[in-house]
């Protein structure tokens, strides 16, 4: 029963331990600060815990500084578009164009633009063809537009 109860009830010590780092960093509110300091005065275990954390931070702060001889700069050369990037740009445009043309073909067929009689290549399943066409129109159209928007933003 006691252990079951402990799961739901935080002791003053466990609460203090959770707040020790914030206390060390000066990030506690006035009320919490007062309660914690009062508890630290009366509890030796928590005081030891506090000291050990303080020492840990002290040790971390005494680590030697890291320095590098390398200078970090952005070169004008790196900023301009490379030939590889240009090829990729052309590929993107081509994919966007093809996707949009296919989307237009799908929607055209959906509206019986190419087969005015309304005959379907799948015979008895015209609804299936119309469904596929509509789906392809949405997917390809979205893909084409997405690529175009991306290219437009990059250019901006």
């Amino acid at each position: 029963m006691k252990t079951w109860f402990k799961r739901f009830y935080k002791t003053e010590c466990s609460r203090t331990r959770e707040q020790l780092t914030s206390y060390l960093d000066g990030e506690l509110g006035a009320k919490e600060l007062q309660e914690l300091e009062l508890h630290l005065k009366s509890c030796r275990t928590c005081r030891e815990e506090y000291d050990s954390l303080r020492q840990t931070i002290g040790l971390l702060r005494q680590m030697p500084e890291v320095s590098s001889e390398r200078t970090f700069r952005i070169d004008e050369k790196n900023v301009t578009t490379k030939p590889g990037d240009r090829k990729l740009l052309i590929l993107y445009r081509a994919v966007a164009g093809v996707a949009i043309i296919l989307a237009l073909v799908c929607i055209g067929d959906f509206g019986h633009l190419f087969m005015p009689t309304g005959e379907s290549p799948l015979g008895g399943y015209p609804w299936l063809v119309r469904g596929i066409e509509l789906g392809l129109f949405v997917i390809l159209g979205a893909l084409g537009l997405r690529i175009l928007i991306h290219l437009f933003r990059r250019r901006k």
Binding site: R17, E18, T21, S22, S52, L53, Q55
Partner: peptide
């Protein structure tokens, strides 16, 4: 952030104690 810092420092303290640095 508070809980990550707290857990991180406690864990670090334990690891340093294991390595006899503290």
């Amino acid at each position: 952030v508070r809980s990550r810092l707290n857990r991180g420092l406690h864990r670090l303290r334990d690891l340093l104690r294991d390595g006899e640095c503290l």
